[in-house]
Design a protein around this nucleic acid. Structure first.
Length: 825
RNA sequence: GCCGGGAUGGUGGAACUGGUAGACACACGGGACUUAAAAUCCCGAGGACUUAACUGUCCGUGCGGGUUCGACUCCCGCUCCCGGUACCA
């Protein structure tokens, strides 16, 4: 038999068998422990790219391994189906977005199936389906009731190209996350969800996520941006009004020598009323902020307002300035300036000749306050009754004094802003609200949900076609019955992707958003896998949404957990020629072409082997061929087992064969140990596959010369094919079947390590002199230090280093090495 | 500035809680098979010096120190690269 490995012939056949056997469906009634493995679901753009392939191969390897380990695995897939690209395609091709979207889903579903991914297709969902988004509308209504969803007029981010507002998280380096168009600020009435109410919990619960990468934890912590300090109320000279500021350094309060307010601050505007020069400056400031100049290098400039603030403790008069570095959107839009202890204030004071007053002294050393600000903590001086306190104590003492005198209090400030969820787009979930002249914004009653999106409309590129759709637009107020107008904005598509992980546990549930009992079984997700680009977008929103669902009573913390994802694996990008694959760069590799040429198993194996999961993967065509070569080699190993079968020569049952059998069995079980370890520790699939390649090499070098030898060879091939199943499932099944395995490889039990096979009678010990390797000795497994020393001395190339030396110390690391420390006699 | 990660052969990358650095693969070189090629198989390979010798020595995991019998691994001090974030008060 000299049949060649042909993926095309094998793969479709096994996919059909798996389908028929229904092995990929999660069971709702099962004694096996549940395991929920989830990959970030795709946007149905129409074509799978290599990033998807990598993501799904990683997830599939985990899911298949866990099944083989005896878990009842939930491994679902679906479609993040609302979004702007569908509208753009609709304009371009003159077909409604729905049609385009569903066609793409069909296309991509076929591609996923071609890859042999073990999804539970019974649970497939598409977020553009009314049965899905109705629950989102239902939850939004609950949030409105609780005041957690609200409409507000605010300065928001607007992308002119996408023709919609964006959430803060969707503005990346000042440009739109989707199309890179510079974002401008606009004042608009928009819908928000109070994520800031959950800032503290979102921050604290990060500590409950040891299975998340530090990087993502750090990014979220950063994004939430908590700072603790005090709000301090300064009086204003000749006025009853106050000037409130936020500071993280109340201990430096006595060092305030001036105040600075933002150009948009009420005080600045008031001061400019009769001051043309100041008016010009304010204009300039507002223009510069929208130009999004390089703030790092921007000159710090300011002008006095002519107002004076009264220090809350000393009662001293300090001038109030307008400064271009004070942000209206953070804190109170005003700051106290302590030039002695803040570098920026220091430079500003120097520039405008404002006074500098040192109030903190370094615990040790001196500090020349003329040269630079001392920004560390220390001991208070020049601070009256607070002199001598440490910074920490002073923060407390000063804040207490302020709140006792009604001039301030402790305050926590977050950088996080409320989530802006309305979009001026058509292809999204309708916001379930009706605007009535008399009753205001009224939520659509539950029994009228879902508010279905009309799917026949044709976008034109300008405003949403919903605005022109009278049947949708004109309704009656649910409260008073008068003619009213439907809300025409739709939800941010991140709303849909924020809770899909919970919908999968009961995807057809009609009574509620989720079935609490199904949540108890599956949630939270045991392993979530996806790109790191969602670190502060999707991954923050999904955590927030999970808590919203919990607090809406959909499940308890005990049933569904406080957090949606227990473990998170952030995969690296797929690169070609050092850059991320993208159509615009023309460096894409089409997964279909790879599958057609080499087969899905080769594509899968290569993407898992070429790099550790969390690092970027450089695409390498030669490497793909290498992966294919490996499978072909294993294929030939199988054929050799067949052809050698007849030799049946028990002739050489001599000792060399026995030793070879022992060696091959040892290498089989070492491999099982290594591969299992790789799965259990960080999913180091590249290492796991390397170990399997080593085993293949050993089997190839092994010449079975006896019955025992052939049994061992067979054992090796079986272990190899079984362990290949998570990576190259079709291939593994084919090899397994040809080996005569009863069960399909993909449903076989994961191989167990035979500890006895790992044992060796003789071991090789590295011999070091002074920690440098000088040779190797082979000694009995249980040999002690003396025997090892004797063996070392018997070895000429080792012994020469001992010549004329006196042994000072001997270190024996069992099974590893012998280190002899010597000195000249 | 702050937070996180990284730096190992020509390349991607291995090395468990400190114990043979460079597994595995790619690329490369040599050989076998072949009329030839492809495919396949075998062999070689970190660097420098040295030897008649595949003999022997030294150097070597970004840089400089340290701890240790022994350091890619731990500690101290740096450099560079990548990602995130920020006039955040």
């Amino acid at each position: 038999m000299s049949e060649r490995y042909s993926a095309q012939e094998i793969e479709a056949r096994w996919q059909q068998k798996w389908d028929e056997a229904g092995i990929d469906a999660a069971s709702e009634d099962d004694a096996r422990p549940p395991y929920y493995c989830l990959v970030m679901f795709p946007y149905p753009s129409g074509n799978l790219h290599m990033g998807h392939v990598r993501n799904y191969c990683l997830g599939d390897a985990v899911a298949r391994y866990k099944r083989m380990q005896g878990f009842n695995v939930l491994h679902p897939i679906g479609w993040d189906a609302f979004g702007l690209p569908a509208e753009n395609a609709a304009i371009k091709h003159h077909r409604p977005p729905a049609e385009w979207t569903y066609a793409n889903i069909d296309q991509m579903r076929g591609q996923l199936k071609q890859l042999g991914l073990s999804y539970d297709w019974n649970r497939e969902i598409a977020t553009c389906h009314p049965d899905y988004y109705r629950w989102e509308q239902w939850l939004f209504t609950r949030l409105m009731e609780k005041g957690l969803a609200y409409q507000s007029n605010a300065e928001v981010n607007w992308c002119g190209s996408c023709h919609t507002v964006l959430a803060n998280e969707q503005v990346v380096d000042g440009v739109c996350w989707r199309c890179d168009t510079p974002v401008i600020r606009k004042n608009l009435k928009q819908w928000f969800i109070r994520i800031t109410n959950y800032a503290e919990e979102l921050l604290n619960d990060l500590d409950q996520l040891p299975g998340w990468p530090e990087k993502v934890i750090g990014m979220q912590r950063n994004w939430i941006g908590k700072s603790s300090g005090a709000e301090v109320s300064f009086g204003l000279e000749d006025s009853d009004e106050t000037l409130n500021i936020f500071t993280t350094r109340p201990d430096t309060l006595m060092g305030v020598t001036y105040m600075a307010v933002a150009a948009g601050h009420a005080l600045a505007i008031k001061a400019a009323e009769h001051n043309p020069e100041l008016t010009a400056f304010l204009d300039e400031c507002s223009r510069i902020s929208t130009k999004e100049a390089d703030v790092e290098t921007m000159e710090k400039r300011g002008m006095p307002t002519g107002f004076y603030a009264i220090h809350p403790i000393s009662g001293e008069k300090v001038p109030v300035w307008v400064a271009n570095f004070v942000l209206m959107g953070y804190g109170t839009g005003a700051v106290m300036s302590v030039p002695a202890h803040d570098q920026r204030d220091f430079e500003f004071a120097r520039k405008y000749d404002l006074s500098i007053k040192q109030v903190i002294k370094p615990a040790e050393d001196d500090w020349d306050i003329e040269t630079a600000a001392f920004t560390d903590v220390g001991i208070l001086i020049n601070s009256g009754r607070f002199d001598g306190l440490t910074s920490d104590d002073a923060k407390q003492a000063i804040t207490t004094w302020l709140s006792g005198h009604n001039r301030g209090n402790e305050r926590v400030q977050y950088r996080l802003r409320d989530w802006l969820v309305s979009r001026q787009r058509y292809w999204g979930a309708p916001i379930p609200v009706i605007h009535c002249e008399d009753c205001g914004a009224v939520s659509v009653p539950d029994d009228q949900l879902p508010v279905e999106l009309p799917t026949h409309l044709q976008p034109t590129g300008g405003a949403s076609p919903l605005c022109e759709c009278d049947a949708f637009k004109h309704v009656y107020c649910p409260q008073c019955g008068k003619p009213a107008l439907r809300e025409l904005d739709t939800f941010d598509t991140f709303m849909e992707s924020s809770w899909y992980m919970n919908r999968y546990v009961s995807p057809r549930h009609t009574e509620a958003m989720v079935d609490a009992e199904a949540m108890r079984r599956w949630a939270p997700v045991d392993q979530y896998i996806g790109g790191v680009e969602h670190a502060v977008l999707h991954l923050l929103y999904a955590r927030f949404y999970h808590k919203l669902m919990r607090d809406a009573g959909l499940f308890t913390a005990e049933q569904g957990g406080d957090e949606p994802f227990k473990n998170l694996l952030t995969q690296g990008m797929v690169l070609k020629d050092g850059a991320k694959m993208s159509k615009s760069k023309g460096n894409t590799v089409d997964p279909n072409a790879i599958i057609e040429h080499f087969g899905a198993d080769t594509a899968r194996l290569f993407t898992l082997f070429a790099a550790p999961p969390d690092r970027d993967l450089e695409w390498n065509d030669a490497g793909v061929e290498g992966a294919h070569r490996f499978l072909s080699r294993v294929w030939r190993l199988l054929q050799r087992a067949d052809t050698d079968g007849d030799a049946d020569s028990n002739t050489s049952s001599d000792q060399t064969d026995a030793a070879a059998v022992k060696a091959i069995r040892r290498s089989i079980h070492t491999t099982i140990k290594k591969v299992t370890h790789a799965f259990e520790h960080g999913f180091a699939f590249n290492v796991a596959i390397a170990a399997l390649m080593e085993l293949a090499n050993s089997l190839q070098a092994f010449e079975p010369a006896s019955v025992a030898g052939k049994t061992a060879y067979q054992e090796g091939l079986q272990a190899l094919s079984t362990m290949l199943a998570p990576f190259a499932p079709h291939f593994a099944c084919e090899i397994g079947a040809r080996l005569g395995m009863e069960k399909m490889a993909v449903v076989s039990n994961w191989p167990q390590v035979d500890e006895a096979a790992l044992e060796q009678d003789e071991i090789t010990l590295v011999v070091q002199i002074q920690g440098k390797k000088r040779g190797e000795i082979t000694i009995a497994k249980n040999a002690g230090q003396n025997e090892a020393m004797m063996a070392a001395q018997a070895d000429a190339s080792i012994n020469k280093w001992l010549d004329g030396m006196q042994t000072v110390k001997v270190i024996l690391v069992p099974g590893r090495l012998l280190n002899i420390v010597v000195k000249p006699v």
